[in-house]
Structure formats: structure tokens, C-alpha cells
């Protein structure tokens, strides 16, 4: 960690006067790196800037020439319109938001709860069929989501889980679990087995050692699992559209398309909805990213 910060501060702390060949070359390198980074950042940020910009424009300004990025008369009117329960455009927003929250939180919680023990078993135990089971899990991620839509739909119909939270959550677990298991297995593999042996000798049961010693060392992995599962579930569209299509079961992304088809020209309303949808993702990222980075830089499992 210190090596990186030192390197970084050296790079900026060049003396202002007397640029030697070496310094000039380093400066050129930095310039190129920063310029490249900025182009990439701009590329990623521009659609979002556009989204926010449109969301706070009055409806009448959307097609006004010349186009402005920073609106001259910004307004929150769009946000109110799409969320106001008593208006035709906003009456389902609360339902959609609740549906999305329930499905996404449940998906990420179940992902961690199931993936952690499963990954631990794959990392530590030998059992018959281990290789096959692990391959089967990974194989799920070799196919696009859409391939499994029809089988899942048939399955959910048979189980009478269409248009239920459980149906959608289970469907989401089919793609969040494989990645979570794979990711967490990597973390467990990096923890020397002596640590849990020591814990068992110090008085823990096998499960106690897992909970008290191994899991705390896996915080970054758990955080990554939560972020990934939540964001995937929150943004998912095709499964939600087909497995939870009734009006009161729709999630936000699905609801948003219906909103758009029912209110054909409401671009500002659409963008306002998009902004609102993005906020929970941003928040969860900001909260967990701190854990993520601190746990990584600690080098928690260097034994």
C-alpha cells in the first residue's frame, strides 16, 4: 500500500524548475495517461449527464434548439409527476419501487447466504461429484440469460410462481449464485486452512470457525457479492417482463417501459424515472465500496 502512495506522490512532486529528459518523459507519460482516462470517463459519463440534464428540463424544452446541457430553467416537476400517486403517470411508481426493492434485496441476501457456504464447501471439502457440480454451476454463465427464459417460464408456471416475488427471486438467483460462488471460492482459497484449524483448536466448532474467522476475512468478497447481485436484480429486464408481468408485480425497469409506451412523448418523465432508478445503485455502491477498498488494501489474508 505504502509503495503505491509513495510512487504516486513522487510522480506529482517533481520540482517545477529544471526539467531533465527523464522528468519530461515522465510528464509526457502522465499527460497521455490522464488524457486517455478523461476520454474514457467522458464516454461513460456523457449519457448520464444527458439523462440528468433531460430529467430536470421542463417538458417543453426537450426539443428546443440549440440543445443545452445545463438547463436554463431547471425544475423538479418531472420527478413529482412520475412519482405522484394521484396522477395517472405516477400512480404505480410506489408499487414498482417496492417490487424492485423486495426482489433485489432478497436476491442479494439469498445470494450471499447461499453462495458463502457453497463456495466454502467447494474450497475446502472433497466430496463425490465436486468437479461436475462446480462445472455445472460455472456453465450457467456461459450462456446468455435469455436462453433460460423459456425453460424458467415453463418451470415457474408449473410451480405456480409466475407473478410472484419468489418466482422472480429464484430466477435471479440462477445467475447471481454462479458468479457469487465462483468469486467467494477464490477468496476462501486464498485463506490458509491453518486459520480455521487454529480456531477449532482455540475452541470453535467448524461452523464457528467459519463465522468468526473466515467470514470476516472475506468481507470484500461478500461486499462484491452483495453489490453484484443487487445491481443485476435491480436492472434486470427480460425475466422481470415475462415472469412478473401483472401490473402490481412489475419492477421499475419493466414499469418504465410501460410508462414510456403509455405516455409516448414524455422524455423528461422517462429520464426522471431513470435517475430515480439509478440512485439506489449509486448509494449501495458508495456504502459497500468503502469496505471493499479498505479490506483489499489491508491485505487481510496475507499469512
Amino acid at each position: 500500500m505504502s509503495a503505491i502512495t509513495q510512487g504516486g506522490s513522487q510522480a506529482v512532486a517533481y520540482p517545477a524548475r529544471r526539467f531533465g529528459i527523464k522528468q519530461r518523459r515522465a510528464l509526457l507519460r502522465l499527460t497521455i495517461i490522464y488524457a486517455g482516462t478523461m476520454v474514457l470517463a467522458l464516454f461513460a459519463a456523457l449519457p448520464m449527464v444527458w439523462m440528468v440534464s433531460t430529467a430536470i428540463k421542463p417538458r417543453s424544452d426537450v426539443f428546443r434548439e440549440p440543445t443545452t446541457i445545463i438547463p436554463t430553467n431547471a425544475t423538479l416537476e418531472n420527478f413529482i409527476r412520475v412519482t405522484e400517486p394521484l396522477t395517472p403517470s405516477g400512480r404505480y411508481f410506489g408499487t414498482y419501487f417496492l417490487n424492485s426493492t423486495i426482489v433485489s434485496v432478497a436476491s442479494s441476501v439469498f445470494s450471499v447466504m447461499i453462495a458463502a457456504p457453497a463456495a466454502y464447501a467447494f474450497s475446502r471439502f472433497r466430496f463425490p461429484g465436486k468437479q461436475v457440480a462446480y462445472f455445472a454451476i460455472l456453465a450457467r454463465n456461459m450462456f446468455p440469460l435469455i436462453v433460460f427464459l423459456i425453460p424458467l417460464f415453463t418451470l415457474m408456471t408449473a410451480l405456480q410462481l409466475v407473478n410472484t416475488y419468489a418466482g422472480l427471486i429464484i430466477a435471479y438467483l440462477t445467475f447471481t449464485l454462479p458468479l457469487s460462488i465462483w468469486l467467494l471460492k477464490g477468496f476462501f482459497d486464498g485463506i490458509p486452512p491453518e486459520l480455521e484449524r487454529a480456531a477449532r483448536i482455540d475452541g470453535c466448532t467448524r461452523f464457528g470457525a467459519f463465522v468468526r474467522i473466515i467470514l470476516p476475512l472475506t468481507t470484500p468478497g461478500l461486499a462484491a457479492t452483495v453489490i453484484y447481485s443487487f445491481v443485476q436484480a435491480w436492472n434486470e429486464f427480460p425475466y422481470a417482463l415475462n415472469l412478473a408481468y401483472s401490473t402490481n408485480m412489475r419492477t421499475l425497469p419493466v414499469g418504465m417501459t410501460f410508462f414510456f409506451s403509455e405516455n409516448q412523448s414524455d422524455w423528461t418523465g422517462l429520464m426522471a424515472t431513470a435517475v430515480i432508478i439509478s440512485i439506489p445503485v449509486v448509494i449501495i455502491f458508495m456504502i459497500l465500496q468503502r469496505y471493499f477498498v479498505s479490506a483489499l488494501t489491508q491485505g487481510a489474508v496475507k499469512a
Partner: peptide, 20 residues
């Protein structure tokens, strides 16, 4: 018997100190 019930203590080659 489980390790915890054997009244033993152990020192490991890589020390196995709890890093956190």
C-alpha cells in the same frame, strides 16, 4: 473428540494468527 474438547494448544508453521 473435536479439537476444542481435547484440551490442546497448537502452534502452526505459518503461525496462523487471525489477521483481522
Amino acid at each position: 473428540l473435536d479439537p476444542k474438547d481435547r484440551d490442546i494448544a497448537m502452534v502452526f508453521q505459518n503461525y496462523a494468527l487471525y489477521p483481522h
